[in-house]
Amino acid sequence: MSASLVPIPATLVRILPEDPENRLFELQTTTPFHVGPGQFVELTVPGSGEFPVSTAGETATGFATCIRQSGRVTAAMFQLDEGMIVGLRGPFGNGFDLTRFAGRDVLLIAGGLGIAPLRGLLHALLEERERYGRIVLLYGARQPENILFREEFEELAANGTVELRFSVDFAPQLGEGDGYICSVGLVTELLQGLQLAPDATTAAVCGPPSLYGCVLEQLASTGIDPDRIFATLERRMKCGTGQCCHCVCAGVTICRDGPVFCLTELRSMPGAI
């Protein structure tokens, strides 16, 4: 990590529209730049601004991030074309500690754009697939067309690498090709009927605040050790280095001490979720 506030240039090598609102941007730097799963970077659109974004996995030449057009700077980002230069700072924060997952079943629960960091984690797990037991991915999206990386996940499910279940908030009608969509409703409903071995499972959760409110304690109540239930928090992380104070919660700098925390830590941070 560099604490410098001066970005380094990165090239947008590929831009893939994921759904109507989200795009996957693949970035490449001239010097090696490794972002671990759960870590984040600060992306600069020159002249417009900077925003924090987590890695959605590494690529052959760099890494990818999934960005939703939600504000002024992301709107400017969406105006950029392949080959253009953006600024990059980081990587920042404590990501997922893979040793906490090793030798255990892995339960990944994502809501909405929260799938992006978990995809990064999933990719890291798949690097050494044999070190882990079952990998279960539960993913809730608004509508079927909002399911990001759907083909990729369905392929992994089809060849047995991961167990996959989608839920959607709305769906007019589930058709033939919707095999992995198991429920219309909250992603937590997907937990029902899962044959989990709580004492052998590590969970990672990422999604909007409302997701954390219901899912984390529910996981604990199934018997999973709160030290092995991880969530990644979203705050207004500006500097990434614990200096600017924007993301501080309960005295903890989310950008530097997090953004990945286990449930035990979160329980001692009032207001964190």
């Binding site: 417009s48 002024r72 400017a76």
Partner: peptide, 10 residues
């Protein structure tokens, strides 16, 4: 100047 560059100013 920002608008000319295609972004709202921040």
């Amino acid at each position: 100047l920002a608008l000319q560059r295609g972004t709202l100013p921040g």
